[in-house]
């Protein structure tokens, strides 16, 4: 029996963002943009979706004179990501059997 995949995570950029943030404590918007190769506009939209689902915590601050956006994965986000990976493994296992 296939488990349904979280539609919020089953998108290339959102999954990339979550995978990155799973491995760090917090990261700047610019760093995520650089690592994912996404455009600023697209990344903003996807971060907003993840934030609305409470998967991410986004803090907007100032670094000197410049605005700074810090992103951090939440417990809900960690749980959703773990569940997504578990479901994926389920798919792979069934395919290889």
């Amino acid at each position: 029996m296939f488990k349904s995949l979280d539609p919020l995570l089953h998108s290339q950029l959102r999954l990339a963002v979550m995978s990155l943030l799973m491995n760090v404590e917090q990261a700047e918007f610019v760093w995520i943009k650089e690592k994912t190769g996404a455009t600023a506009g697209n990344l903003s939209v996807q971060l907003d979706k993840l934030s609305k689902a409470k998967y991410l915590e986004i803090n907007k601050k100032f670094k000197g004179k410049y605005p700074q956006t810090l992103c951090k994965i939440t417990k809900t986000g960690e749980k959703a990501f773990a569940e997504y990976v578990k479901s994926l493994k389920n798919y792979i296992d069934i395919k290889t059997d």
Partner: peptide, 19 residues
């Protein structure tokens, strides 16, 4: 998105975060 593609993205991003 294919499941293999998802796993590839996860693997690539884990490596990218290893700064």
């Amino acid at each position: 998105m294919e499941t293999e593609k998802s796993l590839q993205i996860i693997e690539d991003m884990i490596n990218a975060s290893k700064t």
